[in-house]
Amino acid sequence: MARILFLVIAGVGLTSALSTVLSRNLVRAAVSLAGFFFTVACLFILLEAEFLAALQVLIYVGAVSILLMFGIMLTRGVQGTDLVSGPSAARLPGIVVGLVVFAVLGYAIFEEKGLRTQYSWGALDERTAIARGSKEPGSPLRSAVNNMGKVVGVELMTRYVIAFELAGLLLTAALVGAVAVAHREEDETRSTGSGVPPEKPEPTADKPNP
């Protein structure tokens, strides 16, 4: 059952990943990417990390893909062209490099030898479900799997407190920096730097007026 599920999810994921890369329409590519994010969430569920799965959907499918869409709507340079990306001269090298990376990663995963207490990655067949890893209900493993949100919270507040606060600082810095970089003074009508003469848009002329 789970194997079939895995195959289905992997198949869908592969398809959407491919269509992300191959689609010439940017929005469609972004939609495929969102689909791929979703299949990653499904894989997280198969790995019994439902907390991660929910976060994956919330952050990536819900937020990052929206950001991508807005980015696409924003950054298209010239009007009049369709929302497509042209075939690139780097396509063939890109494919080759991608395949090489894939081969290396695949080789690495297959060839991995477990260190002492670890399961070898290639021997996952013998591995039992994580939640079953320890029978007694109070074990950290079990609570970590069954109540990951809680355990993550406790760890964030104690062991990883510096990383946590630093993440807050990082988010703030990103917010501040992005605002500072993207912000243009409303009063100034200087050009965006693309050589376009500054042009004060008329207040209402561009409103679609049914």
Partner: peptide, 26 residues
């Protein structure tokens, strides 16, 4: 490693942004 990575990102993201802040020059 986690702390290391977050610290690394904090450092570099701030530097990316500081790099781009001279807005009068392309």
């Amino acid at each position: 490693l986690i702390t290391l990575f977050v610290a690394l990102e904090t450092m570099t993201i701030c530097l990316y942004l500081a790099t781009a802040l001279e807005k009068t020059r392309r």
